[in-house]
């Protein structure tokens, strides 16, 4: 589908070439971020609205920083989750924002598919910043970027995505993203934390982290949402940590050169032991840093001049 990406809703929208193109663009923008004045005029005159129906600090800050470094104007339409029920339909909200003349809408919503719906009601480019359990494509792109910086090609690399997969848009995005890059993806979780069906997914499944730990190139841990314990999907967080957490003992069995990744925010002592999170092969803060350049690349690709990558890299440099 290269060339004509209008929206970024799901990793399923991107083929391998699209991802490569975004990774190259990310590299250019990472360089911008290291400059003394980390700002380029690439999106001057463009307006981007943040439409966050669900609380988010990190993702919104990351997108905002990215937009500012591209010289875009931004506006914030922050909606408390309760106002969804106050009468205004999603369509009315979107049309209101569109009427203000925005070029892009970055949306986070607790309901899966909200960004898809929005594309029906606006001409602006829509970027999915997380929709329910469904997708969080820029997270996957920054994970892929971070991983390739350390491992080079991901072809044949073994990735385990561990923990609360059922409720995780990060897992759904990365299952597709890593697989597109040629990696061999395994989900590790008890049945209570897996989707009902994995028919057609490019992943293997195991309930036993110890079975795969030594073979991994990437051990990707998901945030265990504490409220899940109230749903009794795991007996106790302590038991979850023992069975599915990256304990010190398990981390010791990872092969040298393998990476520990986490989308944040972490629950130290639940999905990852506090000590392990600070090891040199844990690239968790680097993921956050790379998030900005990745989001610059995404916003630029969707809203930018449309110049192709090679010319653009020259221009940016």
């Amino acid at each position: 589908m290269s060339g004509a990406i209008r929206h970024l809703l799901s990793m399923a929208d991107l083929d391998r070439d699209d991802i490569d193109r975004l990774l190259n663009l990310t590299e250019s923008f990472a360089e911008v971020s290291e400059r003394q004045i980390p700002k380029v005029p690439a999106l001057r005159g463009k307006t981007i609205a943040w439409l966050f129906y669900e609380d988010s600090t990190r993702t919104r800050l990351s997108f905002e920083t990215a937009a500012k470094r591209l010289s875009a104007d931004t506006m914030n339409f922050s909606v408390g989750s309760s106002s969804v029920n106050k009468g205004e339909s999603l369509r009315d909200t979107v049309e209101t924002i569109a009427a203000m003349g925005v070029d892009g809408i970055v949306v986070r919503h607790r309901g899966a598919g909200a960004p898809h719906r929005i594309t029906n009601w606006t001409d602006a480019c829509v970027v999915n910043a997380g929709d329910g359990w469904h997708q969080h494509p820029t997270q996957s792109l920054l994970d892929i970027y971070t991983a390739t910086r350390h491992l080079g090609s991901l072809e044949g690399r073994r990735v385990a995505i561990v923990g609360d997969i059922k409720h995780s848009r990060v897992a759904r995005s990365n299952a597709i993203g890593f697989a597109r890059m040629g990696a061999d993806v395994t989900f590790v979780a008890p049945r209570t934390l897996l989707p009902a069906s994995l028919e057609g997914w490019p992943v293997k499944v195991t309930h036993d982290l110890d079975e795969v730990i030594e073979d991994l190139d990437i051990c990707y841990l998901l945030r265990m949402q504490r409220e899940r314990q109230d749903d009794a999907v795991v007996p106790t967080l302590r038991e979850f940590h023992e069975e599915y957490g990256l304990t010190t003992a398990r981390a010791d069995r990872l092969s040298p050169g393998s990476l520990i990744m986490h989308p944040g925010p972490m629950n130290r002592g639940v999905e990852i032991s506090g000590e392990v999170a600070d090891r040199p092969n844990a690239v968790i803060t680097e993921q956050v840093t790379n998030g900005i350049a990745v989001r610059m690349a995404v916003l630029y690709l969707l809203l930018g001049s449309g110049l192709d990558l090679v010319e653009e890299r020259t221009q940016v440099a």
Partner: peptide, 15 residues
């Protein structure tokens, strides 16, 4: 419906 499609779409399902 809980199944292949709900899992893929990330929409909570009912079995």
């Amino acid at each position: 419906h809980e199944g292949e499609w709900s899992s893929r779409l990330g929409i909570p399902g009912q079995p």
